[in-house]
Computed example of a mutant assay.
Amino acid sequence: MTLQLPDARGRVRSYEPRTEPLAFAAGAPFTSRTVFAAAHVVADPYADVSPDAPAAVDWDATLAFRRHLWSHGLGVAEAMDTAQRGMGLDWAGAAELIRRSAAEAEAVGGRIACGVGTDQLAGPARLEEIRTAYEEQLAVVEESGAQAILMASRALAAAARRPQDYLEVYGHLLRQSAEPVILHWLGPMFDPALEGYWGSSDLDAATDTFLEVIAAHPGKVDGIKVSLLDARRETGIRRRLTDGVRCYTGDDFHYPELIAGDEQGFSHALLGVFDPLGPLAAEAVRVLDTGDAKGFRELLDPTVELSRHLFQTPTRFYKTGVVFLAWLAGHQTHFTMVGGLQSARSLPHFARAYELADGLGLFPDPELAEERMKNLLAMYGVGQ
């Protein structure tokens, strides 16, 4: 059977879904790369909440999805921007998510790292208040037993007046952290409020400050997550890192080449796109573990078109496509998001995401995905 899918030019065309999915079984832990998937949250579709109310989360479905990622050997990066931090999920909800997911990780032996930010602050804040907010969240993550990811802070971006402000805030946090942390540099394409992070809109100057933080605190930084969608810059940063500090790519446009690496090194991964790509991405890394970089690229390169589609501008709304694919794949029973964010992308965007994901064989049950896509099309008035 064919589906009638609308495109970005307002035309409807026929598409014939595939009938057989790719099937990747769970395997041994990875040996050559450390890989995290930044996981989304599943909203409670029966909750009577408004878009600006605290998030109502379906905890059973949310934790089940994390078990799915762990079963394929992936680590879970929890309470990150993929989980709609600052876009529907407030700090109270994030703290509960961290505690629940960390307990689940301990129960199943899964790897987990959790985001530490300042999103409990309302309105402008002084540097001292920003440090205190970071400390509160760091304590929650460390008490849960998870690794901490120090996320970029909107409040700090607004309050800082010079690079030294970043050096002082991050230095304070790193001195008191119990275990080595991951530092996260999220670019303004993901969050416009982070323009000028590290004290400058000049990325060369910002990079120098970023690396100065790491060099000043040996043994306190496990790695960095770079989300600038600039492969050349990430490679340059990676080559300047202190020995023993990992680079976790957050580049959802160039991840195959960055993970594969070159003669001077490679990136590990902490990626939002590995939420929908989980089993396929895990299989690719296991191929890379054998030293077969060509086989790794053959598996992962074809996924880039889907990733670039999901992360097209406005990039911060990539979460909508991620949750849409989770629904089509059967990981949740509905396409509802916290904050009503399911409305953030257009029907042609969904249609293309379905086509690309189906072509990759990402849906465990292609018939279910097709039926759900038909239901969505009917809701928009597209007859079949």
Results as ranks from 00 to 15, higher is better:
L5M: 09
D7G: 10
D7P: 04
R9T: 07
V12W: 08
E16L: 04
R18F: 11
R18A: 14
T19D: 14
L22P: 02
F24Y: 15
A28S: 12
F30W: 05
T31M: 05
S32K: 09
A43D: 01
P45E: 10
V57W: 01
D60E: 15
A64V: 05
F65K: 11
R66N: 14
R67S: 07
E78Q: 14
M80P: 09
R85F: 13
M87G: 03
A95Y: 02
E96A: 13
L97S: 02
C114G: 06
L121G: 04
A122Q: 13
A125S: 14
A125T: 06
E128H: 07
R131F: 02
T132D: 15
E135T: 15
Q137H: 14
L138D: 01
A152V: 06
S153F: 06
A159E: 10
A159K: 09
P163D: 09
D165L: 11
L173Q: 13
Y197A: 07
G199Q: 06
S200C: 03
D202T: 06
L203Q: 11
V213K: 00
V213A: 01
V213C: 03
G219K: 11
K225P: 08
V226H: 10
G250H: 04
F253R: 13
Y255M: 11
E257M: 09
A260N: 10
D262I: 13
E263S: 14
F266P: 00
L277D: 01
G278R: 02
P279Y: 00
P279R: 02
P279A: 12
A284N: 12
V285P: 00
D289Y: 03
T290Q: 13
D292V: 08
D292F: 09
A293D: 15
K294M: 08
R297S: 13
T303M: 06
V304A: 03
S307Y: 05
R308V: 05
L310M: 13
R316Q: 14
L325Y: 01
L325K: 00
L325M: 05
W327E: 00
W327Q: 00
A329W: 00
G330M: 10
L341T: 11
S343I: 07
H349A: 12
F350R: 15
F350L: 14
A351E: 13
A357P: 02
E370W: 01
L376C: 07
L376G: 08
L377K: 03
L377I: 08
M379A: 15
V382H: 03
